[in-house]
Simulated scan of single mutants.
Amino acid sequence: MRVAIAGAGAVGRSIARELIGNGHEVLLIDKYASAIRPERVPDAEWLLADCCELSSLEEARLDRCDVVIAATGDDKANLVTSLLAKTEFGVPRTVGRVNHPNNEWLFSEAWGVDVNVSTPRIMSALVEEAVTVGDLVRLFTFRQGNANLVEMTLPPESPYVGKQVGLIPLPDNCALVTILRDGQVYVPDAEQPVEAGDELLFVVPDVGEDELERLLAPANHPAGGAQRPAGQA
């Protein structure tokens, strides 16, 4: 897979190293000469160019890229880069870094962003996931599938403690994908029971979240209304 990363700062370089380590081709692009430091990621290609300029993106041959990651520290630049990548070069997948939470609503398909990554929201979701029991916490949103990855630590008073997975009447289009227990990862099957304290990870559409929460923790949420800090994909 060929990936272009707009922004060769600490974030862009870290992403590049990870992708290269996984066997992908990476092009790092930055408009500041001071940021072009090939010795920091020697296996990447480097280009001094402004990703908000169409001519620069043509030079970068974005039409040959499978993914474009807009990872600069400027939300406006990330939006423009994503829009140009999607509309002018037909890049299959774009990822936009959100620096300011108030701008998150802009990072949508209308601006050519397939996945937005908001660090403050991801961090708040991870905090909620770590400290809550019986609350459904949204960890990630799959934009193209209109579904979310959510987590719940099963409370002791749940009516399904000790019940087999196959006996839990999950909402429509909801799937239990993983059970985390005592530091182990379990792939659930219909006969496996769930236990108090299990961390349950589900993929569920928006409309099924309240129903899922009321099902598993009715004592905590008799009227539904989950709090759902969110990260997005």
Rank of each mutant, 00 (worst) to 15 (best):
A4I: 10
I5C: 06
G7H: 12
V11I: 15
V11C: 11
S14V: 03
S14L: 14
I15W: 04
I15T: 05
E18R: 10
L19M: 14
N22T: 07
H24Q: 15
V26M: 03
K31D: 09
S34T: 15
A35C: 03
E39T: 08
V41Y: 03
P42G: 08
D50V: 02
S55M: 13
S56C: 10
S56N: 06
E59M: 13
A60M: 11
R61M: 08
V68L: 09
I69W: 08
I69F: 12
A70M: 11
T72M: 10
N78V: 03
N78F: 01
L83Y: 08
K86C: 07
E88F: 04
E88T: 08
P92A: 08
P92G: 05
T94D: 10
R97M: 05
R97L: 14
V98T: 01
H100E: 15
P101C: 05
P101Q: 07
N102D: 11
N103F: 02
E104H: 00
S108M: 09
A110H: 08
V115A: 14
T119C: 02
T119F: 09
R121S: 13
V127M: 12
E129S: 13
V133N: 02
G134L: 02
V137Q: 13
L139R: 07
L139E: 08
F140A: 11
R143N: 07
R143T: 12
Q144P: 00
N146P: 02
N146I: 03
N148G: 04
L149C: 12
E151I: 13
E151D: 09
T153G: 04
P156N: 05
Y160M: 07
Y160K: 05
G162L: 11
K163A: 14
L167D: 15
L167Y: 15
I168P: 10
P171Q: 06
D172K: 11
D172E: 14
C174L: 05
A175R: 12
L176C: 03
T178K: 10
T178D: 04
D182T: 09
Y186W: 04
Y186F: 13
V187H: 06
D189W: 00
A190H: 14
E191S: 08
P193E: 10
E195D: 14
E195N: 08
E199D: 14
P205F: 04
D206G: 05
V207R: 15
G208L: 01
D210W: 02
D210N: 15
E211Q: 07
E213Y: 00
E213L: 14
L216F: 00
A217D: 09
A219Q: 14
R228A: 10
R228E: 12
